[in-house]
Structure formats: C-alpha cells, structure tokens
C-alpha cells in the first residue's frame, strides 16, 4: 500500500509539483465539495426525524432520540442526560413535560418521579436512520402511484423509442429509396423544434386523439427522436453489407433481416440509446407538467413538484422522495457513466 501522501505526490510525469498543480488540485477539491456536497447533504437529511430536521443549526448526521421501555409505561420513553440539583449527572427517561418542568424516572427504579427544569436536560441521541420518511409518503400519499407511473412511462417509452427509431434507422441505412434524403433532412429539422415552442399545439393534438390525462400522452410525443435515429443509423452504416446480401439470397424477409441480423449486431448502439431514453423519460418535466393534470397520473417528478408547492412543505417526506427520484439515475451513473460520456462525445447531444 502506498501512503496517501505518496499517492498524491506521484505524477505521470515525475518532477516537482508546480504552482499550477497545487492550484489544479485546490480547484478539483472545491469542485468535489460543491458538486457532491449538496447531494450528500440531501441524502443525510432524508434520514432525519422531523424534529431533527427542524433543528437550527442542523446536525450533520441524522440523529434519533434514544428511548427505553420502562415497566409500568405502555410506550417507550425518551432518554435524557439530566444534571441533578446536586450537580451529578444521570440518564433518565422522561414521562411527561408540563410547562418547563420535566418529569422523569430512573428506568431502573420507575416508581419515583423526579422533577427537573427543562433546560437541565439534554436529549440522549444516537446515529439513527429514520425510514419513516420513506415509508409514510409511499403508503399514505400518492407517491407509490407516482413511482409506478414513472417506471411505467420510462419502460414503455424506452421500448417504443427503441422499436420505431431502430426501424427508421434500418430503412435509412440499409435501404436506398426515393425520398431518403428528404426524410433525413426532415429528421434533422426536428432537432430544431424543441418541445418548448410547440407546447400548445402538441397539447391540442394529444387532446384530439383523446389521450389527455393518460400516461400515453407523456409516452408518445417524444418517442421518435432524431438523436435516436442518427445514433442507430451511424452504427448500422458500419455493418458489413455482405451479411445482408447473403440473407436476401436466402430469401429472408426484410423483417427477419431487421430482427435477426441487424438488431443483434446493433446492440451496443441500442444500449446507448436505452440509457439516454431512460434518463430523458425518468427526468422529463415540462411536458408531463403540461399534460398531466390529475394527481393519479402524475409522474414522480411532477408529484415532487406539486408536493413542494404545498404551503406547509413537509420537508422530511419531500427529501426522502427526492432521494427515491435520484436512485435510478445514481445507478445509471455508477454503472454506465462511460457509455454516457462516450455517447455524448459521439453525438454531441444529451
């Protein structure tokens, strides 16, 4: 094992560490703090109890009140460090509090009630993850529903996207036909029409088809994507033509060539498009916000936004649900980051 210091000192080009290197590492250290810090803080906070969250200044780690079962009391009693009138310190369980007077008992001898002033006691706490923040909104608010809607939209939309874009890419790469260039230009042209400028008319179209307030209204409009068509087409263009010619000789139908030869060979490009599509769909905000107006059709993102807009923001639940919304993306990032970055480098799109 190398010591951390030696590891830091080691460089690709051995030599003395220059001023610019020091600056670079300071820049990177600040970067790590600024980029990771907020998300770490969110995750830590999401495990705090409501009262722990309300503290100011906040505690760094989620702390939970320690409690103990005491004979003669039905529910567990919270434990406190108490400074006694004679100056000694004891750990006592609080039975009740009336005004500023706290009534406590010794868990070992629960018969005698000891009364002390409130400011003479401090809560005994330990590091504790409060899963209640996760459980409660999934059960009692609509978050279970939102989560399911998001999963449904993401999975179905990605499947539709893969199917129709790979079909188009197949036609545009393997076949020669009249109007091919026209289609290519049309597909490129759609790149210039972001959803932000056609909100109203797409809403009209979706309503005319009768999809309003259904998850299909979220799934369908973005299913055909120019990024997808081009990513797959570029990949299919590199496939050996002989393979396809040979299959045609063997009287394979076009669908067979597409499904049995081209698609398996295009798996790497399909994988990249899958990652992109999952990210787009899971994170999509503006369009679902426009088209989903009933709470039962909300996706997680819309649900979160609606929940935070409530007057009394229940931060403990909101934080936990934000973490839930973050989990799939965190997984994608940890395992597939390389594919995403190379995908962006190749297409210049995200």
């Amino acid at each position: 094992m190398m010591s951390p210091l030696a590891l830091l000192r080691q460089r690709r080009n051995p030599g003395r560490i220059g001023f610019s290197d020091v600056l670079a590492y300071i820049y990177l250290a600040v970067g790590v703090f600024l980029m990771f810090g907020p998300v770490v803080w969110l995750v830590l906070s999401s495990f705090k109890t409501r009262s722990n969250l309300d503290e100011f200044p906040p505690t760094f780690l989620p702390l939970a009140q320690q409690s103990v079962a005491v004979k003669g009391y039905d529910s567990k009693l919270p434990l406190y460090n108490v400074t006694m009138p004679d100056g000694s310190k004891r750990v006592l369980a609080q039975v009740r509090r009336i005004g500023v007077i706290s009534q406590l008992v010794d868990p070992a001898a629960p018969q005698t009630i000891i009364k002390v002033n409130m400011d003479k006691r401090t809560a005994l706490r330990h590091l504790g993850l409060d899963w209640h923040n996760y459980e409660h909104p999934l059960r009692h608010f609509n978050f279970g529903r939102y989560l399911w809607n998001s999963v449904f939209v993401t999975v179905v939309a990605t499947l539709v996207t893969l199917l129709i874009n790979s079909m188009a890419a197949y036609a545009l790469s393997i076949h020669e036909f009249r109007g091919k260039n026209f289609f290519l230009v049309a597909v490129i042209a759609t790149l210039m029409v972001p959803i932000t400028i056609i909100l109203v008319p797409v809403f009209v179209v979706v309503n005319e088809i009768g999809l309003d307030n259904s998850l299909w209204a979220v799934i369908l409009p973005g299913a055909a994507t120019p990024t997808g068509v081009f990513l797959l087409r570029q990949y299919m263009l590199t496939m050996p033509r002989e393979l396809i010619e040979a299959a045609r000789m063997d009287k394979a139908s076009e669908w067979q060539i597409y499904a049995r030869i081209v698609m398996p060979l295009a798996l790497p490009a399909l994988a990249v498009l899958t990652i992109f599509s999952v990210m787009w769909r899971w994170n999509e905000f503006l369009w679902p916000l426009v088209v989903l107006s009933k709470s039962e059709t909300y996706t997680l993102q819309i649900g979160l936004n609606a929940f935070q807009g409530d007057l009394q923001t229940q931060w403990n639940y909101l934080l936990a649900m934000t973490v839930v919304a973050l989990i799939p993306i965190a997984l994608v990032f940890v395992f597939l980051q390389r594919f995403i970055t190379s995908g962006i480098a190749n297409t210049g799109m995200k």
Partner: peptide, 11 residues
C-alpha cells in the same frame, strides 16, 4: 447533468 431538474432544484 443526469439529475432531473426537480431533483436539482430541491437539492
């Protein structure tokens, strides 16, 4: 870059 806008905003 991968985080949803709502998550970014809430963080």
């Amino acid at each position: 870059v991968l985080l949803s806008p709502v998550v970014v905003a809430l963080v």
